[in-house]
Computed example of a mutant assay.
Amino acid sequence: MEDLKTNTTNYLASVGIEVPSQLPVIEGLDEVVPKSATDVAGRLCALAYVIGLGFGAKGSDLCALLQKFDLMQFVSEHEKKLLGAVVLGDQDKEDMFWQKECAQALAWCIGLVELDHFKHCDDDLAHKIPFKIDPNNFIRSAILRPIYEIQEQSDLLYRMHWYTKNCRLIGQHCDLSESIISKRRKAIDWAYGVEENWDEVPMDT
């Protein structure tokens, strides 16, 4: 894990991102319970609907579709509350809007897209996820990337997240978006198995 940390830190320095060498290592494989390809693909399909809250879709309509395609099992408890809310607050809408970056990261985990953390999610991301059609074949046929690749992303996003937060705190220009990095980190750490509960994935730096 020290080697992974060193490699990540050196890579970040090569692209102009300096992070402290004293930042800790992330969890090793003996400390996590990685999600299966089915877990990741199912969660991705569910997110395709949940994200609609950030674009003004009605929660009741989204719930009906999630239930129709047996995807409620992949929706977090917090999201279920938002889907059932009569009125959604502006912050909740914004949070759901940014879930598209979680979707980009999950789609990467099963080989649908690439990740460029300096850019927003792919313009055609939505077209790569089953929507308003039966997702069973998509979920069953999903194949997870090698766990070491997901581990590398977890380490990279942890250090990038520290950098974006530090830039904000000290008022320094940052070429990375904290919203993009934090959402992708949450999704990758969940897939890596840092935390079972999506709503409780730690975001400390």
Rank of each mutant, 00 (worst) to 15 (best):
G111T: 05
V87C: 08
L112A: 04
D155T: 06
D189K: 06
I133P: 01
I139K: 03
W108Y: 15
S60T: 13
C102R: 10
L88E: 08
K128I: 01
H117T: 09
E152G: 05
E79V: 02
L83C: 03
W190K: 10
D124Y: 05
W162V: 06
E178Q: 04
I110L: 13
S60G: 05
D175T: 08
Q153L: 10
C109H: 10
F131Q: 02
K35N: 03
E101D: 12
R185I: 02
D90W: 00
R159L: 10
V194A: 04
Q99D: 03
D3M: 13
Y163N: 00
H127D: 14
A46N: 05
K5P: 07
E114S: 13
F74P: 04
P146S: 06
Q151M: 15
D61H: 02
A64T: 12
D155M: 07
L106W: 05
F131H: 09
W162C: 10
D124C: 07
D30V: 06
V87W: 13
G59I: 09
L144V: 01
G171H: 04
V201Y: 08
T6K: 15
T38S: 06
N7K: 15
Q153V: 07
V194I: 14
N10S: 12
D189T: 08
D134A: 07
G28I: 03
Y163G: 01
S21I: 08
C45G: 01
D189R: 11
D123H: 15
A13D: 13
K5L: 07
H78E: 14
R140G: 00
F55N: 03
G171E: 07
E79L: 00
S182D: 03
A46W: 00
H127S: 14
V201S: 10
K80M: 13
M1L: 12
D70I: 00
M72H: 00
L176R: 04
N166Y: 13
Q22R: 09
S141Q: 14
R168A: 11
S21V: 11
V15A: 04
I143F: 12
E27C: 04
Q73A: 11
M203P: 09
Q99F: 05
L47H: 14
A48H: 06
C121D: 13
V75N: 01
A191H: 11
K58N: 08
L47E: 15
D124K: 14
K165R: 15
H127W: 12
K68G: 00
K128D: 01
S154W: 09
N166M: 12
L4C: 06
G171P: 09
Y163P: 01
S60P: 02
Q151H: 15
K81P: 00
D122M: 08
F138M: 06
K132L: 02
E94K: 12
H117G: 02
D199T: 11
C167Y: 10
R43C: 03
Q99L: 07
K93A: 10
Y158G: 02
